[in-house]
Structure formats: structure tokens, C-alpha cells
């Protein structure tokens, strides 16, 4: 169903490049087609991504492969409880001559061509660090050494594991809202992929594995332009607008929308969230998905494909239900899609 007009030849070329990018990443990371597809969508929607999942499922490998495929600089920091915002910006050390030196830290070192900034275990860092990250994510700029550093191509990937809760700081709602997606990663279910991951020595050396990914499949400096071209090229009909608004309404007020989940008081379930920015992000991501599928118009499936990752972390439940979030929110989203009529 290729309905892109010939005038959009650049977009067509880029779509092929995106497909090649996905294939290259797939060489290094097996059994994670959905995560790869979502990451590709996030890259072309210029959104930041939070990866969530157990330890050792390949989050870091995936991000290293993406960074290599994107080209550009890649920085990585580990969140710790004693990390301060200055640790990200400044690097202080004693020089060979014994004098203290202050140099740009990991964020500033290659600001201009920094394409992927990977924040590992983000929930171990303090709220001060989250605040700095919020600024970098929202404005893609930071002030240091008496000047403003800009990160035109920056994309922040963060990860947190779901296992520990000790000595961690929950991300404030404002910070979570800046992330385009929260992608949950699990070990592949496919038996063949599992056997390969465990027995094939190719997957044991992450450095060699990521080197198999062709470097710079996408030109990271031009993605910003392409991203905005995609947003303009993909049209949304009134029917799809009504559909998105209907989904939004049903998600925030599930009770009046006629959604019932067993054992839950639907009128008190959702406290808030699902911000207009979140819904705008949703449409942004859905447009990229439509483009990747070769359409220049949105269909409900585009919305549905990205909805859980884009919207789930923006819904805030009553504290009573918050502990069971991992079960309730997916069920709620499933019910929303089963209830709201598409056309």
C-alpha cells in the first residue's frame, strides 16, 4: 500500500535506510524486533527513550548497536546515589603538574555531534541530576563555562531495572513525561533465539557484536530535518483525530467510557496524567510508524502500535492501585482499545 507521492522521494529513500538500520541492529540483538521497531520510531520522532527491563536482557547492547548505526558520538554514564549534576558537566582532575584542572565532562565533551547519551540506572541518581537531565532533554542545551552548549542531535536513552527499590529515586512525573516512550524489554520468548543467545559465542562478546553493525547507516545530523518532514507529510483525517481524542478520554475517564476491570473502582482508578504533550507525542510517534509502513496517512493501527509505550507511563493511578500498576495499566489500555470504536 505504497501511497507516498513521487515528490517524497527523499522520504522513500530514508524509509529504506530506516529498514536497513533495523536489519543491522537485528544482527546484534536477536528476538527484540518490537523494541528495535519502537527505537527506530523514537529516533525519527526525535524522542527520548526509557528502557525498562531485567538485568542482562540486552538493553546496553541494543543501545550500543543503535549508537553505532546512527553514527555520531555516544556517551554513557552510570547513575549513582552520590552523583551530582556537575559530575555530568565538568571533569575535574589533577594535572601532571599537580595543578587542579576542570574540563568539560561527559555531556559537554562532544556536544555538537553527541547523538546518543545513555544514562544507565537513572533511578539511582538524585533528583538534582534528574533536573539537569530534564533541561537537556527538553531544551537540548545546557549552560557551562560561561556559555551555552547546544546538542542539536541529542537523543537521551535511559534505563532502569525493575528489580531493586533500595537507594533509588523515583523519577518525577515531569521528567517521565519528557520521555517519548518507555519500552519494556524482556528476554526473547522464541526458543531458537534463546538457544543462540546462550550457546552461540558470537553473542558473548558485546564489543565484537556491536562492531558487526554497519556504522552510520543513518546520517544522524540529518535526522532532525527528516523527522520534521515526516510530521508534515503524514496526514491525519478527522476520523483519526476523533479516534485519538476518544482513546484519550477513555484512558483518563475509564468509568464513564464504560470500561470495567475486575476488582477495581473505575471511577477512582486514574488520578491524572495523559498530558496533552503526551498525546501529541503519541501522534508524532504514530506518524513515524505510518511512514515506516509506507503510508502517508494515519490509521488506527499506527496509534495502537505505539500507544502502550508512549502513554502507559503518563497515566497516574490512585495510590491504592499504584503498586499493581504493572498489571492494571496494560489491562486498562487493552480495554480502552476494545471499547473505543475506530472509524
Amino acid at each position: 500500500m505504497n501511497t507516498l507521492r513521487p515528490g517524497d522521494a527523499i522520504l522513500t529513500d530514508w524509509r529504506e535506510a530506516a529498514a536497513r538500520f533495523e536489519r543491522e541492529i537485528g544482527k546484534a540483538v536477536v528476538g527484540q524486533e518490537r523494541a528495535i521497531r519502537l527505537l527506530t520510531i523514537a529516533i525519527f520522532a526525535r524522542g527520548h527513550v526509557m528502557l525498562e527491563g531485567d538485568v542482562g536482557v540486552g538493553k546496553t547492547t541494543l543501545l550500543r548497536a543503535v549508537a553505532r548505526g546512527l553514527g555520531g558520538a555516544y556517551e554513557r554514564v552510570e547513575g549513582t546515589v552520590d552523583m551530582m549534576p556537575t559530575d555530568l558537566i565538568y571533569h575535574t582532575y589533577l594535572g601532571e603538574d599537580g595543578r587542579p584542572r576542570v574540563e568539560p565532562g561527559p555531556v559537554l565533551r562532544r556536544a555538537e555531534d553527541l547523538s546518543v547519551f545513555f544514562f544507565n540506572e537513572i533511578n539511582r541518581a538524585r533528583p538534582q541530576v534528574h533536573a539537569l537531565l530534564l533541561r537537556i532533554m527538553a531544551e537540548r542545551s545546557v549552560t557551562a563555562f560561561n556559555r551555552e552548549y547546544r546538542f542539536p542531535n541529542l537523543q537521551v536513552f535511559a534505563d532502569r531495572n525493575r528489580v531493586e527499590r533500595e537507594e533509588t529515586f523515583e523519577l518525577p512525573a515531569a521528567a517521565r513525561d519528557r520521555f517519548l516512550m518507555e519500552i519494556g524489554m524482556e528476554a526473547p520468548r522464541d526458543a531458537r533465539a534463546r538457544r543462540d543467545l546462550v550457546f552461540d559465542p558470537r553473542f558473548h562478546d558485546t564489543d565484537r557484536l556491536t562492531e558487526e553493525v554497519e556504522a552510520g547507516v543513518l546520517d544522524f545530523e540529518r535526522i532532525g530535518t527528516i523527522a520534521s518532514a515526516i510530521q508534515h507529510a503524514i496526514s491525519a483525517e478527522p476520523a483519526i483525530e476523533a479516534y485519538v481524542v476518544g482513546l484519550w478520554e477513555a484512558l483518563v475517564h475509564p468509568g464513564p467510557a464504560g470500561i470495567r476491570l475486575p476488582g477495581i473502582d473505575m471511577d477512582r482508578l486514574v488520578q491524572g496524567g495523559a498530558s496533552p504533550r503526551g498525546v501529541a507525542f503519541l501522534v508524532r510517534a504514530a506518524r513515524v510508524r505510518a511512514w515506516l509502513e509506507g503510508r502517508d496517512w494515519l490509521v488506527p493501527e499506527d496509534i495502537r502500535a505505539v500507544f502502550p509505550e508512549v502513554m502507559a507511563h503518563r497515566v497516574f493511578l490512585e495510590p491504592v492501585y499504584e503498586m499493581r500498576r504493572a498489571q492494571i495499566v496494560p489491562a486498562l489500555i487493552r480495554a480502552v482499545f476494545e471499547t473505543v470504536p475506530a472509524p
Binding site: 490509521v299 493501527e301 482499545f337 476494545e338 471499547t339 470504536p341
Partner: peptide
């Protein structure tokens, strides 16, 4: 007419049926 068919499919399946 299309909507009527959509509603018929939805009611048969007990959920909203999209093209995919």
C-alpha cells in the same frame, strides 16, 4: 454502510476489530 459492518464485526468479536 461501512460503519454498520464495522459495528457488526465489533459486536461479533466483543472488541474493536481493526484491519490488522
Amino acid at each position: 454502510a461501512l460503519l454498520a459492518l464495522h459495528r457488526g464485526l465489533d459486536a461479533t468479536d466483543g472488541r474493536r476489530v481493526l484491519a490488522d
